[in-house]
């Protein structure tokens, strides 16, 4: 290998590394966005990515507008405790809002804190 060709090879490798670093930087900013996005609005495309059990719960909630865990369990033919668990998972994901009215707790599809 001549000096010339090894220099060229070094430059090529440096360019490759520089390209990879650029991609990591871009990737990093995307990751940051999706971190914020966890507390994000539930749209139909996000609905499709949810696991089956949560998707059924969320779809029923879209249809009912606002509902208690009891009302939702009646709709999905599941136990109230199970539905309550799913609803609270959706609340933690930021997709569903929880409001207390007297002794009853109402769930509804959230407005989204993100974009």
């Amino acid at each position: 290998m001549t000096d010339n060709s090894s220099t060229e090879e070094m430059i090529r490798l440096l360019r490759e590394i520089s390209g990879k670093l650029d991609r990591i930087l871009i990737q990093g900013s995307v990751d940051k966005e999706s971190d914020d996005g966890i507390l994000d609005v539930l749209d139909v495309m996000t609905l499709l990515t949810l696991p089956d059990h949560l998707r059924t719960t969320a779809t029923a909630l879209f249809e009912l507008g606002s509902a208690t865990a009891d009302e939702l369990a009646e709709r999905t033919n599941k136990e109230r405790a199970v539905e309550s668990n799913y609803l609270n998972q959706l609340v933690r994901m930021g997709h569903v809002a929880k409001n207390r009215n007297g002794r009853k707790v109402y769930f509804s599809i959230g407005e989204g804190l993100g974009k």
Partner: peptide
């Protein structure tokens, strides 16, 4: 996406 989520509610 926020608008689309609201649109789904309104369509329901």
């Amino acid at each position: 996406r926020k608008w689309q989520s609201k649109a789904l509610k309104l369509l329901m």
